[in-house]
Structure formats: C-alpha cells, structure tokens
Design a protein around this nucleic acid. Structure first.
Lengths: 153, 153
DNA sequence: TTTGAACTGTTACCATCTATAACCATTATT
DNA sequence: AATAATGGTTATAGATGGTAACAGTTCAAA
C-alpha cells in the first residue's frame, strides 16, 4: 500500500492544491495563537491596518483587505465591542465612518503582531531568509498576475 | 492618501497573510474553471486521488486529502450521483467502502486535470519554471514543518 | 434647484467549508 | 461473550464568502 503522503502525487503538480494545504495549517495555527487575545485572522488583519491608517473608512478598509463590505461589518462590531477601535462619522462625508484605534487597540495590536511574527517564523522554519522572501514575492506575483487578468476581462 | 495596495504594508511581512490573499484568488479562479464540469476544488481533488488509487477507502481518502471524514461524505455523494465513482462494500471488511472511478469518472478527471493545469499555469504566469518549482517546494516544507511540530506537541 | 444616479454602511440571506459529537454496523481484542 | 475500536453516516455548529436590498447622504445633470 502506498504511503498516504504519496496518494495525491498527481495533485502536487498544482501550486493551488499545495497552497491550499499549506494555508490550511497556517490558518489553523494562527487562529490558535490569536484565540487567547480574542482575535481571528481577519480581525487581526483589520486591526493592524486600522492602527497603521487611523481615520481610514470602512469601504477603504474592505478594499485594502480584499473582503466585501458586508462581511467587514461584523468584524468591526467585534473590535468595537472589545474597545479596540471607534467608528466616527466623517465630518466631510456624513455617510462614511472613519475608524480609529483606541490606546488599548494599539497595545493589543502590537502584542498580537509579536505573537503572529513568532507564528509566521515557526511556519516557515524550514526555509532560510532568502527562500522565505522568495516565497512571499512569488505569492504576491500570483496575486498581481490575477489582478492583471481581471482588468483585461 | 496612500495607495490601497500599501495600506497593508505591515501585514506583508507575514507569509500567512500574503498566502491567504494569493490562495483566495486561486480558489475563486479554479472554482470558476471547474464549475462547467460540475466540480469544485475539493471534489476535483477527490476525483483525482480516486482515479489514481482505485479501491481506496473513504477514511484513507479523507486522510490523504487532509479533510475530516464527515465532510467527505457529501463530496462523495455528489460524485456518486454524477456517475463518476462507485462505492462498494469491501469484501475483507464489510464496514469499509472501497471507492472506484467509473469510465466516465476517469474521462472527466482527465478533462478537468487539463483545465486545472491551464488554470494553474495562468495563476503562476508571473513565475518562471524554477520559481514555480521553488514555490511548490516551499509550500510543501511549510506543510511538513507543521506536521513535525504537531508530532512533537 | 430639483431630480436621479452613485456611494456608505447595514441587514438579511444563502452557499460553502470545517470541525465535533453521537450513532449504527462491523471488526478486533480480551 | 463482552468490550473496545473502527468505518461510514447524520446532525449540528461556527467561520467564511458573496449578493440583494435598503436608508441616509452626496454628487451630477437637467
């Protein structure tokens, strides 16, 4: 009987399949790491962008994170309820809400970033610095190649 | 105002975040490609492994694809209803079901593989052959690094 | 200036995916 | 024979992702 690890040999030619598996373990691990802080992968990402871009509007945040506006609402509800952010009506456009991190939000953000940094190094421990940089660069090129194609269509 | 593409600069140091975004576009695209064939990413993966390993049991297939057994049931129900596979009680263990691809299943599998191959090349069009191989190798190392850690824990 | 289009956040809703517990039938263990 | 363990299944829950529709606001055109 072949090893379980070889039964999917045909699928290993696809970057997509291997990425799905790698991402699955990363996602599980990062959520495990963030759970004591009351964060998930998405809310963590949102919090980091908010801390880096105070005054950002929800639609801009959604665009930045590449998620749909409706799906962002509950994420921000959670962060707001945790006292990590505030939503304030933008004076120059009363439709929009400008998001601001609270002092507590900034503190938790830094702590979470440190945890996620450790997690990320652990996930890529089989790679040297150069390979790790190449991996991230390759992933970014996949993202932009697709964006290019979407613009053509 | 900073570009939307730069607002998440802090997150780009994390392989996990960049992989999430890259995988998101890959997943969307492959499902779009497979949709005319009546397949999803998971059912495609299952069909390929089944075609390569006739007689495989459901629990072995679940282990191979790294998905939980209950989640495999509906996937196989679909493939069976489409006439692509059969589930037969294993003579030597009447608890187990041995999965076999039908002729039609093998045909569709080959056609789908060809489509997915084109999709995968399109997704990695920004990479040369070497970079593409390095990417897949790096992703596999992430997977196995985590497995190693889980065994330690 | 007023009508209609476009945009912002929101709600409701649906489909997919993943994980867990519990169950029945069967096999293995003792 | 009694008990545990295994294989497939059902039910269920939570997270995720997407669309349609709506109220309030701003913008653009007539």
């Amino acid at each position: 009987m072949p090893l379980a690890s070889e039964r999917d040999a045909s699928l290993r030619e696809f970057a997509g399949y291997t990425m799905k598996r790698a991402f699955h373990v990363i996602q599980s691990d990062v959520n495990r790491v963030l759970e004591p802080l009351g964060l998930r992968m998405v809310s963590f990402s949102a919090l980091v962008v908010i801390a880096d871009n105070p005054g950002l509007r929800q639609s801009e945040l959604a665009e930045t994170l590449m998620i749909e506006r409706p799906n962002l609402v509950l994420v921000l509800d959670t962060l707001e309820r945790m006292g990590l952010i505030t939503r304030n009506v933008a004076p120059e456009d009363r439709r929009a809400l400008a998001i601001e991190p609270t002092a507590e939000g900034r503190r938790l953000c830094e702590a979470a970033k440190e945890e996620v940094r450790r997690h990320d190094r652990r996930m890529t421990q089989g790679l040297d610095e150069c390979e790790r940089a190449d991996l991230i660069a390759a992933l970014r090129r996949i993202e932009s190649a697709t964006a290019r194609e979407e613009n053509d269509g």
